[in-house]
Write a protein that binds this DNA or RNA. Structure first.
Ligand SMILES: [Mn+2]
Ligand SMILES: [Mn+2]
Ligand SMILES: [Zn+2]
Ligand SMILES: [Zn+2]
Lengths: 164, 164
DNA sequence: TACTAAACGATAATCATTATCGTTTTCATG
DNA sequence: CATGAAAACGATAATGATTATCGTTTAGTA
């Protein structure tokens, strides 16, 4: 529901830094908003955005994702397979959210709650390090794989990632 | 001090899986032990290991690092610059340690203490996720950069990494 | 000593990402 | 409205890290 509002907000963020919201950029942001729970690679975004703007080039997608990353609208993350993935920040969030990666089926799920509050207080105090952001990923076995034996990603349609 | 002992232990781990500790593998492990606080790329390791075994090939270094990663002797980590880095696990540790990355000077430092104990209890309980390992990195400003203004990595000799 | 599988070194192939360059679009200004 | 400069774009070449291939060497066993 908030898709329209969030698009407007992102438009404002771009304009406030005197960037334009071109049709290509708007289509790219739309794809990210419509696939918020996924973790799309640049190539993934490119294929999805072609439906909305068929003439777009892959280089523009890379440039747009890079720009959105600089503006801290998306986080560029890496799960160890060879590609960068672009993860829209949650509404109002000012830092990256956490992830759970299943080492059996490859599914990636999200933890929106910030679990690091106390930990960061301790790190700032004891290591004299001023924290600006964090990356936290747990590797393990998802609830589905704990029950169903085997289960080597039986095409559930959910976004997955290779190995550990 | 424990370098020799740790080498012996790694040798045992290899043998227990019926892998051989070839001269090339031994030289590679030696480099990792002698640069434990750094976060070397495959290329970095290759250059360092050439002093001990000049005839070694880059492919062998990649193969060895891959093997050590499978045996959970090293963790393959990624700080967002385009290369994988190989990080020896701390003595006796059964999971990856945490990192602090300075977004000003690029220096990477380590937190050996496990700060995630309580967090993991909560995640396992509330998300029904069986945790096997974790990756935690803080991005921020190191104590040195907080004091010294500017400071864009004035060649301190310490291992650094590009940008956020 | 002879056989077989594991490892190796050199190097070609892959593939994600970045750089280049000519063209198009946007927008301020006259 | 026309014009010129800067920002964006699309196509595609270049780069660079990693992986695959293949012929050779080494280690362990019969
Ligand atoms: Mn996410
Ligand atoms: Mn480390
Ligand atoms: Zn699973
Ligand atoms: Zn610093």
């Amino acid at each position: 529901m908030a898709v329209k509002e969030r698009m407007d907000y992102i438009k404002k963020q771009l304009h406030s830094q005197s960037y334009k919201l071109t049709p290509q950029r708007e289509a790219t942001v739309e794809v990210l908003l419509e696939n918020e729970e996924d973790h799309l690679s640049a190539e993934d975004v490119y294929l999805l955005v072609k439906d909305k703007a068929p003439e777009i080039g892959l280089a523009t997608v890379y440039r747009t994702l890079e720009l959105l990353n600089e503006l801290e609208i998306v986080d560029k993350i890496n799960f160890g397979d060879g590609v960068s993935r672009y993860d829209l920040r949650k509404e109002g969030a000012n830092h990256s959210h956490h992830h759970l990666v299943c080492i059996q089926c490859g599914v990636v799920s999200e933890i929106e709650e910030d679990l690091l509050g106390e930990v960061e207080v301790k790190v700032e105090r004891e290591w004299q390090f001023k924290i600006k952001d964090h990356r936290l990923t747990f590797h393990g076995v998802c609830s589905k794989c704990q029950h169903e034996k085997d289960s080597t990603n039986e095409e559930t349609g959910r976004q997955t990632v290779d190995q550990l």
